[in-house]
Amino acid sequence: MRFSIYRYNPEADDKPRMQDYDVALEPADRMLLDALVRIKAHDDTLAFRRSCREGVCGSDGMNINGKNGLACITRMADLKEPVVIRPLPGLPVVRDLIVDLSQFFKQYHSVKPYLVNDDPPPATERLQLPGDRDALDGLYECILCACCSTACPSFWWNPDKFVGPAGLLQAYRFIADSRDQATNQRLDDLEDPYRLFRCHSIMNCVEVCPKGLNPTRAIGKIKELLVKRTV
């Protein structure tokens, strides 16, 4: 099978290049990550991140035939040849398919992605009604693979100011949490032309999310709450 893979070592190369690989796959090589591991067995200079190899850790996010996704849960059978693999777009490349995610995590941390509750903690745990717990479905599953934020044009233009779909999904995850007491501060923090309102509902995030989540809907809910608070 033919692959065309982005190669770049900023310390040694003047500019990035695409390297072609022809690989004979084994029957067990079902997913793209299997193929990448096989390529790396032949050429150990190729660098990429991977860990759990089953779509849970979010390490192997990359741009596959033009669309962001996780290599470990992308089926080889669904890919057109040559398979063009590039790093996630819009972030600085550390090496080959490895990008520097500092900016992404800085935005994630900026939404205070943890429960804020000043009540004394109960002996066991803070309970929720089943309905309240259901409100977190479609939000808590995010694995922070950065596929969505790096597919978002608004994040490309303003990665330092726009929180991005992943961060905003997490922001809403805590706004929606019945145990959280900082809703107003969270909304204050997001009511900003850059932090939230750079989202123009382009919906690339929904298109690429490997977990099938919908950050645009979460962002819409935040906007709804802001409107409710204003009018």
């Binding site: 330092d160 100011k161 204050d188 923090d189 009511e191 900003d192 032309p193 850059y194 932090r195 939230l196 309102f197 906007k223 802001l226 409107v227 608070r229 204003t230 009018v231």
Partner: peptide
């Protein structure tokens, strides 16, 4: 220093 937090946007979005 990167500054954000202008505290507007929802009125414009609604408008």
């Amino acid at each position: 220093r990167e500054v954000v937090g202008a505290r507007y946007g929802v009125r414009d979005w609604l408008a």
